[in-house]
Simulated assay, not measured.
Amino acid sequence: MRFTGKNIVITGAGGDLGLAISERLISEGANVLAVVEREEERTKLDKISPQGVLESFVADVTNTEQVKAYAEKAFSLWGAIDGFVNNAGIQTRVRPIVDFPEADFDRVMAVNVRGVFLGMKYVFPRMRDGGSVVNMSSALGVVGGAGIVAYVGSKHAIVGMTKTAALEVGNRGIRVNACAPGPIAGSMTFKLAEEVFAGSDKTFGETVPLGRHGTPEDVAGLVAFLLSDDSRYATGTVHAVDGGFTTP
């Protein structure tokens, strides 16, 4: 019960990773504000049996006023935020750069980069000294990937923002790290595989040394570690959970 009495905000809580992270933190006693994109996603949280407190909030992470609202909601509930999982993110169609739709590029950058920036901007002032932030990057935030320029670019940007934030808030004892998942079993990975491996039954899981997809629970375990005091001297770093995908 590492998170008993700890107040944690999670964005993208309606997705595969967000649900697993919410469930893991709740199981260890956390008070969680689960931020979802749409009202109907709130029902996905119903399966979680809280050991702590689970609240939900609907917000567009690209909208300044709505980001301010979820940060203020957590603060009004508990008086301070101890942890923040900046998890909301999207991926679009696979296309080479010369054919990549500008609207798709702008949308990915808005959610994956602006959303992470706004989250930190408005959560930091409401965060307790000594807190911890995990920004969700990707294995593709440290290597390239043909056909997904917006996603790769956005996840690289998150690594840079994480390092910058760690330098800025370290004097408050706040740690900021990035989690970099590889091919995790879930809707985003499977949809991407349908395009990348069109006409084949090949999967991303076959491309990594461990020979399988990761699970959302694998990612949740690493996030819980980074939020906890078990990682109290780690900040400004990128932590892979990718089955060896980025191993040289």
Rank of each mutant, 00 (worst) to 15 (best):
I174D: 01
M109H: 10
E28W: 05
T43W: 07
A139S: 15
G5C: 02
V32W: 07
N87A: 07
A157H: 05
S132E: 00
Y70W: 15
L210E: 07
E194A: 15
V152A: 15
V238D: 00
M109I: 14
G14Y: 12
V134Y: 08
D60L: 05
A71V: 05
E39L: 08
Y70S: 03
T207H: 11
K68V: 13
V176Y: 04
L210G: 02
H156S: 08
K191Y: 02
E39T: 12
M188I: 13
G243E: 09
T189K: 00
M1Q: 13
L192W: 06
K6I: 01
G147L: 11
A166W: 02
L192S: 14
K202G: 02
G14S: 11
A220M: 04
L140W: 15
I90W: 12
I81K: 00
T246S: 03
G130C: 07
T4E: 15
G199Y: 00
L54V: 02
M120N: 15
V152E: 13
P181I: 06
L25V: 05
A178C: 00
N171K: 15
F245E: 14
V133T: 04
V85I: 14
G130H: 06
S49D: 14
L118W: 07
I148P: 00
A30T: 10
G170N: 10
F117M: 14
A166L: 02
P50R: 06
V61K: 10
D60F: 09
L118S: 11
Y233G: 03
A59H: 06
D230K: 09
F84W: 04
V123F: 06
L118D: 04
K73F: 06
G153V: 06
K121S: 05
R42P: 07
I48L: 09
K44P: 01
G141K: 06
V94D: 13
E55H: 13
L226F: 02
A110H: 04
S22L: 08
V32M: 08
L77Q: 12
K6M: 05
V159P: 09
V152M: 13
